[in-house]
Design a protein around this nucleic acid. Sequence first.
DNA 1: GAAGATAGTGATTGGCCACTAACTTTGAAT
DNA 2: ATTCAAAGTTAGTGGCCAATCACTATCTTC
Lengths: 183, 183
Amino acid sequence: MRMSAEERRESVVRAAMIEFARGGYRGTSTEAIARRVGVSQPYLFRLFPGKQAIFEAAAERCVEETWRVFDEASAGLTGEAAAEAMSGAYMGLVEDRDQLMMQMQLYVSVFAARASGEEEIGESARRLWEGLFERVRIRIGGDMRDTTQFFAHGMLINTLVALGFPPDHRIWTGFDDKCDKAE
Amino acid sequence: MRMSAEERRESVVRAAMIEFARGGYRGTSTEAIARRVGVSQPYLFRLFPGKQAIFEAAAERCVEETWRVFDEASAGLTGEAAAEAMSGAYMGLVEDRDQLMMQMQLYVSVFAARASGEEEIGESARRLWEGLFERVRIRIGGDMRDTTQFFAHGMLINTLVALGFPPDHRIWTGFDDKCDKAE
DNA sequence: GAAGATAGTGATTGGCCACTAACTTTGAAT
DNA sequence: ATTCAAAGTTAGTGGCCAATCACTATCTTC
């Protein structure tokens, strides 16, 4: 159970993704994260300077992870085929609600931070998100409109997952045949 | 400054929309809401049974308000023309960030509530959202795919607003010509 | 096997916050 | 003018939570 600080930090980040996804920044106690890691609460503050740093690490990891999923799914593909592959992969993420919800928590938390004057957080979040957007855009052939559409559908999926519409609900119609054929 | 309980409740709901939009459920104190209303904090608990009830009222109002905007913008129109009108109206809402962010807060809060076993909240939120979806769908001609697309773009706008991308940022390309002509 | 470093804990604290209880003010009808 | 109800306040409570401090246990290297 004893492990290096680096390994511990890693497990903290993973635990934090789950807890923050479900509770949001304010709704998640460091106690809850520590419990999930299996470590005492004060020890988190040896591994990270503060709660916010843990959240930022989890948020960054979340975006990386999302790209990893896209990248794997569309490896070797380009254009429309890549877009379809990534759409399918994102639909697969619906099972892993925590991953999708961590995204949402990032968005609202950034807004809250900005609303109370911490614009640097906004800047770094925008850089992260734009980085993902760009990588996807290039992968699917560079078209801005297609990329926008791709992300738009992703964001709608996040919403439906958050609200808890069951996968067989009629509201999901229009995702069954993804954003293919029409364009 | 003295007013009827009903009027007071109304101003509480309006104030709550702003505060909850910026801080989220956990990040907003009843003190902050009361201050914005211009009333003492304990008095809120005479007007509402608890913080949660205030949030629910604000959330419901938010959805109603959104439909009102759509309805006004697309009055007398149908099909694609209605869709374009509503898209334009939604883009107009970008100025009023609080309105859009209250939506997002609703989504993540519902997820949090569901994660801690309060599924009834999820049910009522889904009813609200589906109601909006249905009204929009009918207005734009009944097609499920078009409606999905419409909402998808809305959700992406929410995200971009949350992250604070300035309106002239290149990421907004693809919204300039809305979801028209292609289909 | 001693010594320094690294991993980890228990106890605590100061601040915030939802909510309650008990009291006061205001307005309007009688 | 008096009264009664509705509008509103001040003071307080109990619980939670991020962060700190002082301490212990376990490796590693010589």
